[in-house]
């Protein structure tokens, strides 16, 4: 869980930095999108590195989900009879309790996101448009509901990361009483930066700063 999660977090950071290129203008962004495919050339053929990244990510996502599902199944086996009284939670961090549901919603979002911007299947501009145009079209004020869905999903990713990161520190054995404050802060900061980074694009498109 922690290892696959870490791969996905690193990817998210890279993805977010790439997204921010949208603010450098249409050409820069399209160029960046193109570079993703030519990365590693001429040492390796077109799209080799990107394909490797895609495979790694797909495997990471599958393993991450598989771990989550097996943990959940194990949890169900470990408590066959549930409590009659609603268990009162002592641990008051929202993020902790929405990992599994949040994960499912995030998965749905990722599927839509791929159909939208990678394959263009559900993009208003269609699959053949330039990446920059696809984004602008998606988050145009008239498509405010897409923006809203995107933001909600990214915030969920943030919550997922908030507990996920912190939990990974604990699983990797770094947690100590005198470090928890720092680790919490680190997890919260990374989550917040990622959320802000991702959210900034649609918001600025919607209000017309990027067009």
């Amino acid at each position: 869980m922690a290892v696959t999660g870490a791969i996905l977090v690193l990817y998210l950071i890279a993805h977010m930095i790439g997204n921010l290129k949208v603010f450098l203008g249409r050409d820069d962004f399209n160029h960046y999108a193109h570079w993703l495919r030519t990365m590693g050339e001429p040492a390796v053929p077109y799209r080799t590195v990107l394909t490797i990244i895609e495979i790694v990510l797909t495997v990471a996502v599958i393993l991450h989900m598989w771990s989550a599902v097996s943990l959940a199944r194990r949890a169900r086996r470990a408590r066959p009879v549930r409590y009659a009284a609603r268990p009162t939670t002592q641990e008051h961090r929202y993020a902790t309790h929405v990992m599994r549901y949040g994960g499912v919603v995030i998965l749905l979002f990722v599927i839509w996101h791929l159909l939208d911007l990678t394959f263009g299947a559900v993009n208003p501009k269609g699959g053949d448009a330039q990446p920059y145009d696809k984004i602008v079209a998606d988050f145009a004020p008239s498509h405010w509901y897409i923006t809203l869905f995107y933001i909600v999903a990214v915030v969920l990713v943030g919550f997922h990361l908030r507990h996920g990161l912190w939990s990974a520190f604990q699983t990797l054995g770094w947690g100590r009483q005198n470090r928890y404050r720092g680790l919490r802060l680190l997890a919260d900061t990374v989550a917040a930066v990622i959320v802000l980074g991702f959210v900034s694009v649609p918001v600025l498109v919607t209000i017309g700063v990027v067009s």
């Binding site: 943990l71 194990r74 949890a75 470990a78 961090r93 912190w166």
Partner: peptide, 22 residues
């Protein structure tokens, strides 16, 4: 047959002896 740990911290919170999460 116990479940796996997902670091929710509920255990420490109810522990009558306050066994630390670390």
């Amino acid at each position: 047959g116990f479940g796996g740990c997902t670091n929710t911290g509920e255990c420490t919170a109810v522990c009558p002896k306050g066994i630390p999460f670390e």
